[in-house]
């Protein structure tokens, strides 16, 4: 019997070439972050940690990192808290306008960031709020809600509602039944959604570029201006730290959930 299992030699070759292209930038930036020579990615003069020191000693970078981490943390928690009731509504309830509401929630995802950024800048200028930490955080929550909602909807649709009903029949209040029976089963969706929200809030450039100013920047915006104005491997050192952090998170997801499941929920 002939078996067609496997991708086939041509697909295998092109596929591996594509994979190499996808990961190609990462090794170079890691090499560059250890290069003593700002003009050479691979240097004959050995390696140095001075760019990492330079990153941590740069006050603007430290302030931007703190801002980005705070925004990402608030966005993750807030968007998950908003996404839980939204997912329950989407999976368990049917009403007129439900589809429309779900489409509108997803709108910030399909509208290019530059448009949302311009709109947000116009709004905060007109109302006198001005750009800064909170306007950007609110924009990030709106952007992250569809990202956290999707895995939770996928997760919740796969659960048996009878378990929660059983708890209700045994006398638990709706809230307590949800918290003690359903919520623990939503852990995979919360992990996947939380990861997407955190990464989006941490990495967003398009909206952050419009809502930052001289006194307030985020890590991507600060990196962009540093590259434009100074351009030494300090940004490469920052990137290497981010890559290390991502590898750690991937291992964590693999242990907690399995990468297959993570992607299924995304």
């Amino acid at each position: 019997m002939t078996s067609s299992r496997g991708a086939g030699p041509i697909f295998m070759c092109v596929g591996m070439a594509t994979l190499a292209f996808i990961v190609l930038p990462l090794p170079f930036i890691i090499l560059y972050s250890f290069s003593p020579n700002a003009y050479a990615v691979i240097s004959s003069q050995g390696f140095t940690l001075k760019w990492f020191v330079s990153f941590f000693e740069n006050d603007r970078f430290m302030a931007a990192t703190a801002a980005s981490l705070q925004i990402a943390a608030i966005t993750t928690v807030a968007s998950l808290l908003l996404a839980i009731p939204t997912a329950v509504m989407a999976v368990r309830h049917r009403f007129v306008g439900r589809e429309l509401l779900l489409t509108l929630i997803s709108a910030p995802l399909v509208v290019p960031g530059v448009i949302v950024g311009t709109a947000a800048l116009g709004f905060v200028s007109q109302t006198g709020i001005g750009p800064g930490f909170w306007p950007l955080t609110v924009a990030m929550i709106a952007l992250a809600l569809p990202l956290t909602m999707r895995p939770l909807i996928a997760n919740l649709s796969g659960l048996d509602p009878d378990l929660e009903n059983a708890a209700r029949n045994l006398g638990a209040s709706p809230f307590s039944a949800f918290m003690r029976i359903t919520l623990p089963q939503l852990a995979p969706g919360l992990v996947a959604g939380g990861t997407f929200a955190f990464v989006e809030a941490m990495d967003n450039f398009a909206i952050a570029a419009f809502l930052s100013n001289i006194t307030f920047t985020t890590l991507p915006v600060e990196s962009y201006s540093y590259i434009r104005d100074i351009d030494d491997p300090t940004v490469a050192a920052m990137a290497t730290l981010l890559i290390l952090f991502s590898v750690f998170v991937v291992f964590l997801i693999e242990r907690l959930l399995g990468l297959d499941k993570f992607l299924d929920l995304g």
């Binding site: 190609l24 990462l26 930036i29 990861t195 890590l219 990137a239 890559i243 991502s246 590898v247 990468l259």
Partner: peptide, 17 residues
């Protein structure tokens, strides 16, 4: 692993690379 890892490492990292 490679796909999720690169996706998580962000845009600025790759633009600079």
């Amino acid at each position: 692993f490679c796909l999720v890892g690169t996706f998580l490492s962000g845009g600025v990292t790759r633009a600079y690379a």
